[in-house]
Amino acid sequence: MEKLLRYKKQVVILAVLLIVLIVFSGIYILNTTLNNINCSKSEAHMIALNHFPGSIISSEIEYDNLEIIYEIAIRDQNLEVIDVEVSAKTSEIIGYEYKE
C-alpha cells in the first residue's frame, strides 16, 4: 500500500497524459478523414450508376486507411448484382465485382 501511495502522483500524471494523447489522436484522425471527402454519397451513387446502369439495392460507407469508400450494390437490367467501390477522396470508381 505504501508503494502505491508513493507512486500515486506518477500514475495520475501518466494516466492524464495517456488520455490527452488518445483525444488528440482521435481529433487528428477525424480531421484527416473529413478533409479527404470530395464526393458525397449521392454523388457516388450517380458516378456508379453512370458506369453501371441499373438500380441501387444497397449502399454503405467503409473506412480504409483514413479514407472513406462508398460501397454500392447495383442490380442491372440482366438482374445481375454489381458491387461498386467509389472513393470519396477522388470521386472515382476504385473497384467493382459482379456477384453471382
Rank of each mutant, 00 (worst) to 15 (best):
15 A>H: 08
92 E>C: 02
68 I>A: 09
24 F>R: 11
4 L>S: 10
13 I>T: 15
2 E>K: 12
52 F>Y: 06
8 K>V: 05
51 H>E: 06
49 L>F: 07
79 L>F: 13
54 G>R: 04
94 I>P: 02
30 L>M: 09
68 I>W: 01
66 L>F: 12
32 T>P: 11
43 E>F: 00
41 K>A: 00
72 I>H: 02
15 A>W: 11
35 N>W: 03
40 S>F: 01
89 K>A: 05
23 V>R: 02
80 E>G: 13
86 V>W: 01
19 I>E: 01
100 E>P: 13
79 L>Q: 14
60 E>N: 15
32 T>F: 08
98 Y>L: 14
2 E>D: 13
64 D>A: 10
78 N>H: 12
21 L>M: 14
45 H>E: 11
44 A>W: 07
30 L>Y: 08
97 E>M: 15
40 S>T: 15
16 V>P: 06
56 I>E: 01
25 S>M: 05
89 K>I: 02
17 L>I: 09
62 E>A: 09
98 Y>M: 14
2 E>H: 09
42 S>G: 09
16 V>A: 12
5 L>V: 07
69 I>C: 08
9 K>D: 08
13 I>A: 15
46 M>D: 12
2 E>A: 11
69 I>F: 11
88 A>Q: 05
29 I>M: 11
66 L>I: 10
1 M>H: 03
95 G>T: 03
64 D>L: 08
71 E>S: 13
53 P>Q: 09
99 K>N: 09
43 E>L: 04
44 A>D: 02
82 I>H: 06
22 I>K: 03
36 N>F: 06
15 A>R: 05
8 K>W: 12
45 H>Q: 08
17 L>T: 03
37 I>N: 07
89 K>Y: 07
30 L>T: 14
99 K>C: 03
93 I>D: 01
97 E>H: 09
3 K>D: 10
54 G>D: 06
6 R>L: 11
64 D>K: 12
61 I>F: 00
77 Q>G: 00
61 I>P: 02
55 S>Q: 13
76 D>S: 09
57 I>K: 11
97 E>R: 10
23 V>N: 02
55 S>W: 03
89 K>C: 02
27 I>Y: 14
96 Y>S: 07
48 A>S: 12
100 E>R: 14
64 D>E: 15
56 I>Y: 04
62 E>P: 01
2 E>V: 09
37 I>K: 07
88 A>G: 14
59 S>D: 06
